[in-house]
Design a protein around this nucleic acid. Structure first.
Length: 368
DNA sequence: CTCCAGGTAA
DNA sequence: TTACCTGGAG
């Protein structure tokens, strides 16, 4: 890691902020310094690129214009607003946070990073972003962009996969951040990280901070940031049951904890949970019979099932790779007392919050 | 298809 | 440390 003199730091601040004043992006959440606006945008941007976030942000503000409105929203509305963005626990945490602000702070946001960190769903990054942008507190906002930008500027070799490394970056950035315009400084770093200093195809030749970029000057840009790899996702085999009862789709709501919590899908059964001799070598006919037996046993529902002659749907999460065979079925009229779900018309179907993997299942079904 | 990026909670 | 989701690049 290299060190900058105080003259270099001042030079960098001026160069960065001058560039930001000229070329910073004009985004919906940069119209004012409302902490609510900053917060919503930051939570969305944690996981998604700007172009995708914009329409979600506009609709979110339309549906939930204030912290008070968000605190009172029905959960299904919340999940619908977040449908397709992923990491659904975040929007539930946002509502818990909104309720904390109403109950503990009388609707007024706390104004320091330390206090913001106490709120549900607000970690060190988001606390720094809100405190610096909305309240002008000179604190760093260390996200993936900051890791990438500063590791290259200063050739910081610490492994960003290790939690302790955050402190190294916070210390470094604290010395470099503009004391007068900390919010703009942090946002300029984000813009730099998504334009000239990208992960795979940086364009430092044209970057406004080219001359400060030690890794670029040394031809080692792509060596930064240093990050150890994660293990491969584990394969899991599923069968999706697209079943109708009296012309209505059978849908299930997932449990309130774990993956895709509270979202709606067609019944998804792990092959290894079905009554099969050996699920790794089961034939379509054996799977049909096993699924019917499972429905009878677990839900007390009479299902006639037929495999669909389509490619399985694949969907990869960080830690699991799902391969999903599609199966079509018809249910005898019966009660759903033992089934965690309901039957819906096509119109009602569209109102249920559903994850991307379910969208893929519908796509494959309709393309058959 | 594979690989990878990205914050917080538990 | 591991779970949580989707999208983009190659």
């Amino acid at each position: 890691m290299i060190e900058w003199s105080s003259a270099t730091i001042k030079d960098f601040q001026t160069t960065l902020l001058t560039w930001y004043d000229e070329h910073g992006r004009d985004l919906p959440w940069r119209q004012d310094q409302e902490p609510y606006h900053i917060w919503v945008s930051e939570i969305m941007l944690q996981q998604t690129q700007v172009q995708t976030v914009i329409p979600y942000y506009e609709r979110f503000m339309d549906w939930f214009p204030t912290v008070a409105a968000l605190a009172e929203a029905p959960e299904e509305r919340l999940l619908k607003a977040w449908e397709g963005l992923g990491y659904y626990s975040r929007v539930r945490n946002m509502q818990r946070c909104a309720r904390q602000i109403m109950a503990d702070y009388d609707g007024q946001w706390p104004t320091t990073a330390a206090a913001l960190s106490e709120l549900v769903g607000i970690g060190p990054y988001t606390a720094g972003a809100i405190a610096s942008i909305a309240f002008n507190e000179p604190v760093p906002a260390v996200d993936g962009n900051a890791y990438r930008v500063f590791s290259r500027l200063l050739e910081i070799d610490d492994d960003i996969a290790k939690p302790q490394t955050r402190q190294v970056f916070e210390d470094v950035i604290s010395k470099i951040i503009s004391p007068t315009r900390p919010g703009d400084f942090n946002q300029a770093i984000m813009d730099l990280g998504s334009s000239y200093m990208t992960a795979r195809q940086p364009d430092s030749e044209h970057s406004p901070v080219k001359r400060f970029n030690q890794a670029y000057l040394d031809g080692k840009e792509l060596d930064y940031p240093v990050k150890t790899k994660k293990p491969r996702p584990k394969p899991v085999a599923y069968v999706a049951v697209l079943a109708k009862m009296a012309d209505q789709w059978l849908m299930t709501q997932r449990p309130s904890t774990g993956m895709l919590a509270n979202l709606w899908t067609v019944p998804l059964l792990r092959l290894e949970d079905l009554p099969l001799e050996d699920w790794t070598i089961a034939t379509p006919l054996e799977i049909e019979a096993a699924v019917s037996a499972y429905f009878k046993q677990e839900y007390q529902l009479e299902l006639t099932a037929a495999s669909l002659p389509v490619r399985p749907v694949t969907h990869t999460f960080t830690h699991q790779k799902w391969t999903i065979q599609l199966l079509q079925g018809t249910l005898e009229p019966g009660d759903l007392a033992f089934f965690a779900g309901k039957t819906v018309t096509d119109t009602e179907l569209a109102t249920l919050p559903q994850p991307k993997v379910q969208a893929k299942i519908w796509d494959r079904y309709h393309a058959r």
